[in-house]
Design a binder for these strands. Structure first.
Lengths: 241, 241
DNA sequence: CAACTTCTGTGACTTAGGTAGCAGAAGTGC
DNA sequence: GCACTTCTGCTACCTAAGTCACAGAAGTTG
């Protein structure tokens, strides 16, 4: 991507704010941006399928995407990662070069940057500073996956839902605010906690009746943050982020 | 660990065969071994608790250990990783320096090597060849965790058990052989698939009656590998390693 | 060998969380 | 505006996978 591109400025800004590139020297980050190619994908389009995992690395600039795996027998879809601005995929294939059985789907109209694996590998070798941002990012991924698996194994669905909401809640002044997932359908939410639409609906009804959340179609807000925390701690649960 | 140690020879051999150190030059690997310290831990002892995750990195030389997380309310334990010779822990804390809510327990009398995080970080910076082995190893971890989580979300317990057995089966000449998990109790097996002793027992009974596995106390063998594969593919399942 | 502890197998019971199906509300597209 | 698709809510029902409890088998320890 060249500096005279109309998208250059805000793309660079997105990179600067990302975990993966944020700590790099301005010169380095600009050099890297030069090797990236910009793409846009419309909402609901499939950005990457298992067969394509071994070619290029992607970084989300704006919009959301989900990395999923599907059970072909039941048709059920499980969302492994929700990818937002600054997130890269597919890290696994980048690390070991092998095909990875996951798909990535755009949840909004999205902008991404992309570069061949070789380029990224070069950066890793040549720029220790890149590695210093890359490794903690991988650490975060493993942390997330570990929690995801543990929660599935040890917690009931209601608690997993509550944790999902809590994880995406930021302290907003009057009311706490839900980032990233406030406008997702129950179907999507279910996919993120390894459950099913009907069940999520049921639990959300419960939370609504207790006044913990306020919801209307495609709009979800947390009203009583404290009560949500208690819901998690009381029921079979353990604290961990 | 010094070259005149009585344990030096077989420790070095273990490192050479490991994924993490296997591809390094002989000189480098020997230099690294010098910075490692040898420890032994008896079966059932706790090698690492959450508070200790941020200090030192460990590499298993012989014996097995498990990395677990527990639900304090129910007392249920979930095994995140089964660690064998060549495996390192805790990778997450090594990567991002933060505390990690997991424990590691010895499942046999084990030998480990250990070094402070700083030492490993130095290796990563100074030896690109180390990084070239390290990154794919991390890739494998993420792959495992992704499958673990997906399986928990999408598959029933019977299928998860069958996959667990299959994953640890190696083609032995007369009969296929179970590595690493052949002598584990049902309780331990349950912990690895996010279930519970009784349920695992039930499913194993089923497999026994069909002649797919042969089991006596503390001894488990796969008899009809093909049937096991079919069990996985027929029922709600998807292929993936 | 006796006295433990740890495992395994089983039966009876409960329930969380799944499927199926439908109706109305809320958006979207033409 | 009308026709269409997508969401949400709810009911009725089913069942996989839990809990609890107990007995005997298999190891382990002194």
């Amino acid at each position: 991507m060249k500096p005279d591109s109309p998208f250059y400025a805000h793309t660079l800004k997105a990179l600067r704010q990302s975990e993966l590139f944020g700590r790099l020297d301005e010169a380095v980050i600009q050099e890297m941006l030069l090797s990236f190619q910009r793409e846009t994908w419309p909402k609901k389009s499939i950005v990457m399928q298992p067969e394509q995992t071994t070619r290029r690395f992607y970084v989300v600039i704006s919009g959301r995407a989900k990395m999923t795996r599907v059970n072909p027998d039941t048709g059920r879809e499980f969302t492994i990662f929700l990818l937002g601005a600054g997130d890269g995929f597919d890290v696994v294939s980048l690390l070991d070069g092998k095909k990875h059985n996951v798909s990535v789907t755009a949840m909004d109209d999205i902008e991404v940057l992309t570069a061949p694996f070789d380029t990224i590998h070069e950066w890793i070798e040549r720029h220790p500073s890149f590695n210093r941002g890359f490794l903690p990012y991988i650490g975060k991924l493993i942390r997330q996956l570990t929690s995801l698996a543990s929660d599935l194994a040890l917690l009931d669905t209601g608690t997993r839902l509550a944790k999902l909401l809590l994880r995406h809640t930021t302290q907003g002044s009057p009311h706490p605010r839900l980032r990233l997932i406030n406008d997702l359908s129950h179907e999507e939410l279910a996919g993120m906690i390894g459950s099913v639409r009907v069940v999520v609906s049921r639990y959300l009804q419960g939370l609504k009746k207790e006044g913990i959340v306020v919801a209307r179609r495609g709009q979800l807000e947390v009203n009583r943050l404290q009560a949500l925390v208690e819901r998690i701690e009381k029921h079979p649960g353990f604290k961990d982020k």
